[in-house]
Amino acid sequence: MSATRSLPVICAIGFVALIVVGLLLPEWAMFLTTMAFAKGLVALGIVCLMRAGLVSFGQGLYFCIGAYVAGLMANWTGITDIFLLTALGIIASGITGMIFGPLLATYRGIFFAMLTLSLSMILYGFLSKMTALGGTDGLNVAAPTFLGYAPEGRALGLSLYVYTCAIVVIAGGLVRTFFDSERGLIALAIRDNELRVEYLGASVRKEIVFSYVAAGILGGIGGVISGLAIGHVDPETAYWTTSGEFVFVAILSGYLSIPAVFVGSLLLEVVRSFSNLYFPNTWQLSLGIFLLAVILLLPNGLGSLLAWRKRRRETS
C-alpha cells in the first residue's frame, strides 16, 4: 500500500502549500478560507457516514456544541486558548456522539436522517429558550489565544488560518487512514450489503457508532473554529438549514476524495459571497442554479473529477 506510506508526505506538502497560498491571500479571502475549512470539517464528518450509506441531517448539533463550548468556556472561565478549547470541543461532541450513536445506529435512511435532525432541533429549541445564554441572539466570544500568544488584526487572521489548515491536514490524514483501514472499508461494504457484512462476522452497529462519533468530533472541531473566528455564537448553528448546508457540501464533494470536501466547501463560500454582493436581490437564485448545475453535471460530486483522473492515469 504505497498510498498509505506516502500519506504523511502528501499531508506535509499539502500543509506547506496551504500556508504559502495563505500568506499571499488578502485578509478577506483568508477569513473566507478559514470559515470554509471549518465548515468543511463538519462536511467531512457527513462524508464518513455517507460511506456507510447514511446521511445525517443533524450535524448542526455538533457544530453548535463545538461553537457553544468555545463561547461559554471563554465567557465563564476565561479560557481562550484555542488548543484547549478544541480539546474541550472534541470531548463534548465525542461524549454526545457516544450517547446518541448507539441509539441511532439501529436506524437507516430517512429515519436516521430525521432522528439526527430532531436531535439538533432539540438543542436549537433549548438554546433559544435559554435567555441566560443570550437566547436566539446568542453571545459574543473573545478572540482566541495560541499557547499564550495573543495576536491582533492580520496576525490573528493568519494564526487562525494556519491553525485551521493544520487541523484540516491532520483530520484529513486521519480520515484517509480510517477510510483505507479494514474498518473503513467495512463501511463501504455496509453501504452495499449490510446483511452480508454481519454474516462475515463484523458488527454493523459498532461500525456505524464509530463513524457517527468520528463525524460528531469533526463537527465539534468545526464548530470551535467557526465560533472563535466569527466571534459570536447563536442557536442558528443547530438549526436544520445549517445542517442542510453541510449535507450539501458533502453531496457537492462526494465521498471519493477528501480534499474535494474542502474544495467543495470553499467553492460554495466563494460563490455565495460574490453572488451576495453582485446580485443582492437574487443571490439565492444564483446559488441555487450553481447547486443544480453541480448535481446535474457531477452526480458523484467534485471528488469524481479527481478519481476519474486517477483512474485514467492508472489505465494508461
Partner: peptide, 15 residues
C-alpha cells in the same frame, strides 16, 4: 444569519 453577516461584513470592509 449572523455567521454569514460577519463574513459579508469583512468582505465589505476588506474587499
Amino acid at each position: 444569519g449572523a455567521t454569514k453577516q460577519v463574513q459579508e461584513f469583512r468582505n465589505l470592509v476588506q474587499r
